[in-house]
Write a protein that binds this DNA or RNA. Sequence first.
RNA 1: CGGGGUGUGGCGCAGUUGGCUAGCGCGCGGCGUUUGGGACGCUGAGGUCGAAGGUUCGAGUCCUUUCACCCCGACCA
Length: 422
Amino acid sequence: MKLSKLFTKTSKNISSQIESVNAQLLTRAGYIYQEMAGVYAFLPLGMKVIKNIEQIVRDEMDKIGEELLMPALSGRERWHATKRHDAIDILMSTRAANEKALEKSTAEYILNPTHEEIITPIAKHFRTSYKDFPFAVYQIQTKFRNEARAKSGLLRGREFIMKDLYSFHTSEDDLNKFYELAKERYDAIFDRLGIGQDTYITFASGGDFTDDYSHEYQTVLESGEDVIYLDRKNKVAYNKEVATPEDAKKLGVNFDELEQVMASEVGNIFPLSTKFSEHLDYKYSDEDNIQKNVWMGSYGIGISRLMGVITEKFADDKGLVWPESIAPYMYHIVALPDEENIKVANKVYETLGEDKCLYDDRDSASTGERFADADLIGCPVQIVVSKKTLENNCVEVISRSDKFESFMHPIDEIESLETKLA
RNA sequence: CGGGGUGUGGCGCAGUUGGCUAGCGCGCGGCGUUUGGGACGCUGAGGUCGAAGGUUCGAGUCCUUUCACCCCGACCA
């Protein structure tokens, strides 16, 4: 992509009101645009990052489930059936389709905050024999939650992108078995996203979902909202709400040795037991044709929140720093203005591929501005073409994250750059 | 939902005890000069001050109501 054609532009200024690092940098660099509190548009650069995160999540989820897409709207009956209509105060709804209906009708459409109520009837439609189990389906979709206080940019929104997977089983044992498989996939996802080192599976309460426990995936982050008690050695953590000395003892850790840190929840998984199948009357026939409740599990990952968390995790005082696995572009090419430089830069751009490069071909921007923008936008590798580098028939290759020392790379060996970096 | 703060060209801000034609920087258009770390000169376009109501000869400035956003707390499926 040529910078001269990119839909967005960077900006130097941003309101001093906005304090969260992710909102500030992502806005300045042109990745997101705020529509209202907790509601953002993902602009071309941001969209690429979202897609890259989604692709990693899909890749791992496809190993344990099938992708589908459910509606964002639902009728209210099911939410009454599970008694969550009044229990969930973040539930958003819209009254009716038109004004005439509004006067007479009590119709209400729920803007789904999660999809247990939606997927269960669908699953029931297709799978009612013990032979049909187990199975799992997932989707990546926009969720709506009327947060009393949206805040911290992408970290807590009213509208956000989430991956949610639901698993269905004939027994608790089978659910538990799947639950462990899901954990493995989650670990793989966070590793691939570059935050595996700092992301801990965390014991937490189940909230409205289950009377039992749940597991959160918490990424250590100074600006995170949650306090977790960390056991680095065993790579597990405990949410504040369950981290009492008694609980710790039950879980086999020394409460006094736990390290207290701030973190942000990037995913969570719940054994739902038979809670939802009971409320929504989802039963299967076993070998003896006896009707039994289906066991369910629910597994979420906050896609857009991850973008915010990863931003905060790696950004420095110059701007964004993306892990290679989700960067909008691998290379950011800066050619200093000069006919020869531009000729070479064009060639580099074509050789490496326009889908891998962000090419600063703006003739209006000054040198300093180009470098500043490259740092702000945060592509992993910067390639500079100037008189200085051309004297040696080279381009300069710079790591945005200081992962490697800058080096000169011969122009006629551009094709080999990718392998050299890998 | 409680507390605090802020709303003035696209963005960031200034605007004194009410006073004349609402300023500045960035950005944007034009012309020219520049180019290894957010360049410079000249020139031009663009706002009715979040919204509604009120006080006054006169309101960006005072009063009332309201909306929005940001921050702290409560909440967080």
